[in-house]
Amino acid sequence: MSGHTPAEILASHPFTADLSEEDRAQLARLARLAVYDPDDYLLREGQPATAFYLIVEGLVSIELFIPGHGPRPLQTVEGGSAVGWSWMLAPSRWEFDARALERTTAVVLDGERLRDLFIEDCCLGLRVVHRLLFVVAERLKAARLQLLDLYGPPREL
């Protein structure tokens, strides 16, 4: 995958594959390819949220650093999904850390230029935000189920 251009990857990535070629070309102009080694951080809590990550291959841990304990992983995101929506909510900072657990490839889209593009082309903005909402909803649903502690002892349910 790392031999491909962002435009080629966007054509097959589940997040963007069903956008028009023209939409994808607009996104590709704001995109670069990045490769992370295990334990590299894609983004860190408190830093400015400047990018949107489409994970192509690998595994990313969304986590929170707890002083005295270290990183506490909360969910993982695998190839085919996306990481980070704080860039939409400007001016913003990342609320969590995202760390590669395996060698990970991502298409990284510039957040500020994405926001400008959405103002210029609201329809494209809506299509991307709709997809992003789907990712957010799936992640929220998963987090709610995790909260239930379904596999805990019966008395704790």
Binding site: G70, P73, T76, G80, E138, K141, A142, Q146, L150
Partner: peptide, 19 residues
């Protein structure tokens, strides 16, 4: 559903793996 940083695998619920 939950793990510490020594776990290198997936964290999340099993229905989400279907995708």
């Amino acid at each position: 559903d939950r793990a510490d940083e020594r776990w290198r695998g997936q964290i999340g619920v099993v229905p989400a793996l279907i995708a």
